[in-house]
Design a protein around this nucleic acid. Structure first.
Length: 688
RNA sequence: AGAGGGGUGGGCUAGCCUGGUUUAUGCUGCAGGGCUCAUAACCCUGAGAUCGUUGGUUCAAAUCCAACCCCCUCUACCA
């Protein structure tokens, strides 16, 4: 079986966020990696959607060409996907010659087949910007509620929210320059969807594996009647429409980006594989299954419009020239952020560039899949993130580490033979033997979340097995038996390396590294999931833990700091100004020399010390975080510098009447401030 | 308004299509115990849910039907 695996095309104007990632890109990556591991023939493509009004407008604002802007942004997204270890065979973009030519030829074919017609319409045109305005780029006063910022398609007032036609607006204005647009006649080319209704209905009904919710949405849509849809736009930034008389028009992005699924494979075959026949090999073969990973908002486009275009193209074509219809779509619900919508402007959400700064990639990949919105909208919750990663660490990571450590300690890192198996061994070994097909079947049913949970659950089984066998006792009496148990455990670790690869590839690599299996030469693959892959006599490497526990409070803080830093960057000089204090302000601080006369650690804390200090004129109690830096005896008798007029504060039940001053660097090194010992001064001397 | 999805122990979640072997699954958290090899980890036991509300169908409903309440999403020349 051959597979064309694809993910929805991200719009080039924005960095994708975690929700975009799990819905399409990451899910498809897991699927593609799994198929490759299984030994299937697969090509995995996607790309940036470069065209459309927002990119053109953004470019205009920055005073560069749309071409320059989108190329730059495309490169940023492409690099990020590489960092996310998305294993595209070709991540391209829609403004490349192969795609453009392909789209133009494709539409001429459809026209030849009688699915394109021309129609005159009236729409708003801005004379100042020389621009036909899409609905969203027209603002005006809502005729229903009087709200002034209503857009051409909908009134934005939360109280109203009514759907509008641009012509309904009172005093319409161009959203780019603010001038009043005029109505202008223009011709557009339409796709004759009603003509395709029957065939599309048949396609959806015959395809038994598309998800029930997607199917009902499509059939419903067909029942309501598919509208004729304009496929051209009066925009400069796009693919020139190839129709006669359509000079200066471009193809509407929705109607060309989806064709990228086909053209990206063409480009891959020609440019990367240097073998043109690979294109037909995938796209013109009945044995090819094409799968599409998308968010739920994209269902209609992938299950009606894209197949509709293919059907229109295939008409009157001989069998070998026809393109295959989609095999399945996997659509996810939406990912929310702490029960809120992702929103860049409100700072709600996490974007894939900042995620990489906060935690290892695999933690994000793991958490996103573990939490994949398969049934209903799901929230990214920080608390769940911590929870899930700790499960990964404790259940999977710790088992691996224990196994490695035992073998390293008891047997000098050498795997010893498996002996006679008893019942407990047999049960665990048989689970191990089945796990490959259990997890694989789930992935093939697009149940990625369940598949991953299945891996975790067999790791729990492994922990039970290890507890029952207790090699740390066994080693005292029966070394051979201990080796036997550890042999079984190491087989499981090897299996984990294979099972986890599609989900968290970096960690899989780490497992094989410590296992001392050279993945460069030949990566162990899905069919090798068994109970015998590691032979007796094999030597493993000195182990180190593969995962760490996660403290999300730190991450949240770090995220906030990086965002603040980014936001404040242009105003650095202002910050410096702010930090200047006047002498009068400094004088308000009462800083004095004092002597520590007694010190004792505070119970149930790691670092806090209770200090009794002498200021010469009075004695006070201070609390300071010093226990891990200085030892208690060392502190006694030291002369220190204290801020005495800081409001007192209770810490762990002890009242601290002041603050001891110390130097702290970025690495957490701490040094008490003291004064020049050669010049002795009285206790209580003021520092000025 | 129309269309689509959802409301299950403190938090998250499975089951719903194809009604009954489920005393409603699992994780986390909580309580108790065990182990002490490992990253305070691992293992065992326990408490905790009128499955949004109200009706209906049925011998039997979280699961099917109806009405209602609440939450989310989409509504096409926006990407």
């Amino acid at each position: 079986m051959k597979w064309v695996c694809t993910s929805a095309w991200p719009y080039v104007n924005a960095i994708p966020h975690l929700g975009n990632m799990i819905g399409s890109v990451l899910s498809s990556d897991i699927f593609a990696r799994y198929l490759r591991s299984k030994g299937e023939d697969v090509v995995f493509v996607s790309g940036s959607d470069m065209h459309g009004t927002p990119a053109a407008v953004a470019a205009k604002k920055q005073n560069i060409t749309p071409d320059e802007l989108t190329k730059k942004n495309h490169q940023i997204i492409k690099d990020l996907f590489e960092k996310w270890q998305i294993s595209y065979d070709n991540y391209t973009q829609t403004h490349n010659p192969i795609h453009i030519k392909f789209v133009q030829e494709f539409y001429l074919e459809i026209q030849k087949n009688g699915f394109i017609f021309e129609k005159e319409i009236e729409s708003f045109y801005c004379q100042h910007d020389s621009f036909f305005l899409p609905d969203r780029f027209i603002v005006g006063t809502c005729p229903y509620c009087g709200f002034e910022g209503a857009r051409g398609d909908q009134c934005d007032s939360p109280a109203c929210g009514k759907l509008l036609e641009p012509t309904e607006l009172i005093r319409p204005r161009c959203n780019i320059c603010g001038n009043e647009p005029i109505l202008k006649k223009t011709n557009h080319w339409y796709l004759d969807f009603p003509k395709l209704e029957n065939e599309l209905e048949k396609f959806v009904k015959d395809n038994e594996i598309i998800p029930a919710n997607a199917r009902s949405a499509c059939l419903n849509s067909i029942k309501e009647g598919l509208p004729e849809r304009a496929i051209t736009r009066d925009l400069e930034w796009g693919i020139p429409a190839p129709f006669k008389g359509a000079e200066n028009k471009t193809i509407y992005v929705w109607f060309e980006a989806v064709l990228g699924y086909i053209s990206a494979v063409k480009e891959w075959a020609e440019k990367i594989e240097k073998d043109k026949s690979k294109f037909e090999y995938f796209w013109n073969d009945k044995n090819t299954r094409s799968v599409y990973f998308i968010g739920k908002d994209n269902i209609i486009f992938h299950l009606l419009i894209f197949p509709g275009l293919i059907l229109a193209y295939n008409k009157n074509k001989p069998e070998p020239e026809r393109f295959e219809l989609p095999y399945n779509v996997s659509s996810t619900e939406f990912l929310m952020y702490e029960n809120d919508k992702f929103s860049k402007s409100r700072g709600k959400g996490i974007w894939i560039d900042e995620a990489l700064e906060l935690a290892p990639l695999d933690y994000w990949r793991f958490n996103l899949i573990f939490n994949r919105p398969e049934k209903s909208d799901t929230s990214f919750l920080w608390s769940e993130f911590q929870n899930n990663i700790n499960v990964l660490n404790d259940v999977v990571g710790n088992f691996i580490h224990r196994t490695f450590t035992f073998i390293d300690r008891y047997f000098g890192g050498i795997v010893t033979p498996m002996g006679e198996t008893d019942d407990a061994d047999a049960i665990f070994l048989s689970s191990m033997k089945n796990i490959g097909s259990v997890v694989g079947d789930l992935i093939e049913q697009f149940e990625l979340k369940k598949a991953l949970k299945e891996v975790i659950s067999i790791a729990r089984e492994a922990n039970v097995y290890l507890t029952e066998k207790a090699p740390w006792h066994l080693i005292k009496g029966d070394k051979e038996k201990t080796g036997h148990v550890l042999n079984i455990c190491i087989q499981f670790v090897h299996n984990l390396g294979i099972l986890l690869e599609p989900f968290i590839p970096d960690s899989s690599k780490a497992i094989f590294h410590y296992l001392n299996v050279n993945t460069e030469k030949e990566r162990p693959k899905w069919p090798q999931i068994s109970g015998t892959a590691i032979k007796a006599g094999h030597k493993i490497k000195k182990p180190k833990p593969i995962f760490q526990k996660l403290d999300v409070e730190d991450l949240k803080l770090k995220l906030k700091e990086t965002r603040d830093a980014k936001a404040e960057k242009p105003e650095v000089s202002e910050i410096k100004k702010k930090q200047i204090v006047s002498y009068d302000e400094f004088k308000k601080l009462d800083i004095r020399v004092a002597k520590i006369i007694d010190a004792e650690p505070i119970a149930k804390t790691d670092n806090l010390v209770k200090l009794k200090i002498d200021l010469g004129f009075e004695q006070r109690t201070l609390v300071a975080g010093l226990a891990q830096i200085y030892n208690i005896e060392e502190l006694k008798g030291k002369k220190i510098v204290v801020l005495t007029n800081l409001g007192s504060r209770k810490m762990k039940g002890v009242l601290s009447q002041g603050m001891l001053l110390a130097a702290v660097d970025d690495d957490g090194n701490v040094s008490l401030l003291t004064y020049d010992k050669d010049k002795e001064v009285k206790l209580g001397s003021k520092i000025e």
